[in-house]
Design a protein around this nucleic acid. Structure first.
Ligand code: FES
Ligand code: FES
Lengths: 145, 145
DNA sequence: GTTAATTAGGATAAAAATGTCTTATTTTGT
DNA sequence: ACAAAATAAGACATTTTTATCCTAATTAAC
């Protein structure tokens, strides 16, 4: 469904959103530990997020990653997913046909297209900021117990 | 969403279901052409389907692959998907947590779990036999125009 | 200024997915 | 029996994904 890269991207962003509520930043090692991901690979993912303007980085002592206060309020999971793996998940044919449409529907189109819309809707409606709040209240978790 | 292997498996099975309606079998080359997939790789996928009892093969001249009349009526896309890639798609946490449950929900669980149920439902309700009929009526297609 | 801490970037590696090729093996038709 | 046609199986190759490592660049603290 989602690539590992995308999973890490979402979790890292949510962790940083939580930190943002306390006006704190975090370094790679801390983030990787918090989301149970490999350090070096997580660093690469964070680089991608920086390039896409989703998170910001600061080098040097006491440096790290954080989310700008102005980007946080409207940031959705969709933006993260699209940044990392494009919009294939919410646009492409589930059976790999070149153009998904009612003109040349694949055998799954009729039942899948609405589900894909639900996925798009879910990703759009999941606000990073809201999820950060739920994380703080221990209602949701970024790693297995 | 689905692996290429799984895409080919579904398309190949549907093509054979169509053939089954005419009590015909088909060889790898014909199938691969019909579903727009690489011959050799498709052969491997068909081997997997044979091992899982979803299709049957006959060697030698006029041999090929077909679906047994008794397996066709109740065959669902879910059976194909599970045979090829297991039940992860309809069971696993979308963010890779080890146990998907309400006890330790990930940030997407509440909204994703119902969608995953929809996917399961879709795969269960899509009968290979019905889709074969729709293929014959040119209502649906196995490859892009 | 020097050192330590940190991200950035490039090179490399390992694993998995996808795809190809070659050689059995089996079956049918002649 | 023999030849042809087809799948089965194993080896091999390529590409993509996932992961690691090393060096450079930057920043802050002392
Ligand atoms: S054509 Fe396959 S999902 Fe639309
Ligand atoms: S815990 Fe992630 S989908 Fe259920």
């Amino acid at each position: 469904m989602l690539s590992k890269t995308c999973e890490y991207a979402i979790k890292a962003t949510l962790y940083l959103a939580q930190k943002a509520h306390q006006s704190e930043r975090a370094n790679v090692k801390t983030i990787a530990k918090a989301i149970d991901s490999p350090d070096a690979f997580t660093a690469k993912v964070l680089q991608q997020l920086v390039k896409h303007g989703i998170v910001t980085s600061v080098k040097g002592t006491n440096g790290g990653f954080f989310i700008e206060p102005q980007t946080l309020p409207n940031l959705t999971l969709l933006q993260i997913v699209v940044a990392i793996e494009g919009d294939g998940l919410v646009k492409d044919c589930v059976l790999g046909l070149k153009n998904c449409s009612n003109v040349n529907p694949c055998p799954m189109h009729d039942k899948y297209a609405p589900i894909r819309d639900n996925i798009l809707n879910m990703l759009q409606s999941l606000l990073v900021n809201d999820l950060a709040t739920q994380l703080e209240q221990n209602m949701i978790f970024l790693k297995s117990k």
